[in-house]
Design a protein around this nucleic acid. Structure first.
Lengths: 194, 194, 194, 194
DNA sequence: CATGAATGAGAGTTCATTCAT
DNA sequence: GATGAATGAACTCTCATTCAT
């Protein structure tokens, strides 16, 4: 079937991304995407066979990009506490974004695909836990943090972030609510100098 | 809308509940419910105008029932730690339930209705925080718990529970994962006797 | 239409033949043929404008070939009965072929084109009748056959063959069924020596 | 799913019958039938799920009717030769009908369904053979017919009729052609009084 | 000559919703 | 109050055909 135009595929993915951000996953029809792309009905099918396929590729593209961003930040030479704080700040920004978020689309997609072989969400969660655990370990070594159960603490942070994320999409959250909880977490780790 | 049969309404809600547990919210059609109830298409419209309306009433009924259950447990004369443990155990059971859960339906509904006036989910979350906060306070008073920021701790617990809940629906969780995290939480509260 | 490659045209006809044998005529799309040929969509249109056009050329090629085969057999110096038997054996083989037959495609095509000027099917049928009539005549002359109405007998044979052919495609036939009927026909012609 | 209106179902079958007579089977779409019936798209699906389903019911209705007609004729007290002649006349009328014939639709349908369990076409063919065989037997008994192989003769008649039928749809036939062949058949059976 | 991306018409199918009975 | 037939809008998907390269 040849390569088709890679550019057009990218273009479709971009436009589709907007649609998924706007409407989540389940409500999105091929027609929605066709209209967003201003291409023909058949034209879309040349590139993608279903909304699932499209969302999956949108997410893949995101995951790749995220990795890059992540790697870039990590190479800084900050302290563990600095990095963790940075990480949480990033998460907070993400959490409070009003519109341009795929969160609902992702949830709706994985409600259906939770049992999938290589569940991307699980991978990301697990990798998040590991990174935080390492950071906490580094912080303990450098005397910044005190923690008896780094793995538990790391999981705790990730679950809280997940909790904040789903709440932000189902009941709304304010900046204060996020700050309060992130502060609570950091306070539990950082050694009070007295 | 005249009087109609309250019994029939209840009957519809029961059957509809099963459908929502099976298929979430967005995929459920009026037809699905008509078929589950084995009533006529027009008959359903006599009682409910949309799947939204139906789910809302299903949830209302649940909320009332939950309150009762909750109240019943609370009147026991256990210690704060006992009650909190009981509460978490209940939550764990809920989290690990395979099929008979409205969780996905609720999420899918509130993705659309997060901005609703009296968002039931928010109410339940807030009330959960308050109850736990009170329990922690009682535990501190009785010398069972140590906690510098009871509100933060209570919120932390609720966010973690939300995180576990959404993860259970999007990536699956195991009993060990729940136990680990709940243990971590209790360990953070209970005073180590030395 | 310029010169184009005759070889490519032949190639397309060969591949298209397979498709028609597989799917009949009406269900075959230009896409099917493009895919069978592994050429470009536009490329096919350079040679043929429709599936009708393609089938027609496939059939023409067949007709030419059949004539050759036919002529080859006829030049043998067998008796009339031998030749007729040979002819019926050929027909039987054709009738019982499971897959590689254009029969359905031909029928489907001529359902639409029955009124065509030079209907190939009619020509073939008429020529079949004539050939058989001649054979019977020769057989009578040589004392092999007895027949009061050679033309009627020849038509009868051809109609029976047509009947067997359509039945083989609409209800299936067994070798026994064919043998029985061909035997019946031969018995009607051959003089019983007493 | 209740009874729906039997009358409407009949109405649809009638209209669909016209469509199948007009266009055969494969070219007929649900839309064609919707338009012929002047009902809504969804309305048709209330009664039938596909064109196959519809044609099948059209044919069933026909088969029932044919049986009745057949039985009615058979109860007459004619001689075997009379009945056979009557039967062939009926077939001739059928063969020469220009428009109102389902023949093509039936063929197109059974090209696809030739392997079906209870292939209606085969049943009808077999029953036809048996009836004719019986008639020939009766004719022999009454001294009207002479025939050494009644089963072969009966099959021969049925195959010829099939051959005439398919030819009438793929190349056209004239009344003379039918008469000639039917005469040939009858001559083969009837005893020449000398 | 050849390619294959693009278009748009059209078929299939499902449901929310209405309404005569 | 109930019923369920009927409607029509909306979606999915597939191809014939064209056309810029």
């Amino acid at each position: 079937m040849g390569e088709k135009s890679v550019q057009k595929k990218q273009y479709i993915l971009e436009k589709a991304r907007d649609v998924f951000m706007e409407k989540g996953f389940k409500s999105v029809t091929m027609k929605d995407i066709v209209e967003a792309c201003e291409i023909s009905r058949g034209g879309l099918y040349l590139y993608f066979g279903s909304t699932e396929e499209i969302l999956l590729e949108v997410l893949k593209a995101d995951a790749d990009e995220d990795d890059d961003v992540f790697t870039n930040r990590i190479t800084e030479d900050d302290t563990a506490a600095d990095i963790l704080t940075l990480f949480l700040k990033e998460q907070k920004k993400e959490l409070l974004r009003k519109k341009n978020s795929l969160t609902v689309a992702i949830y709706e997609y994985f409600f259906i695909h939770k049992a999938d072989k290589n569940n991307m969400l699980r991978k990301q969660f697990d990798s998040g836990v590991k990174v935080i655990e390492k950071l906490i370990g580094a912080g303990i070594a450098s005397g910044e943090f005190y923690c008896e159960n780094p793995k538990g603490a790391a999981s705790n942070i990730m679950y809280v972030l997940e909790g904040l994320k789903i709440n932000s999409q189902t009941m709304g959250i304010t900046e204060e609510m996020v700050d309060e909880q992130l502060l609570y977490i950091m306070e539990g780790l950082i050694i009070d100098i007295e």
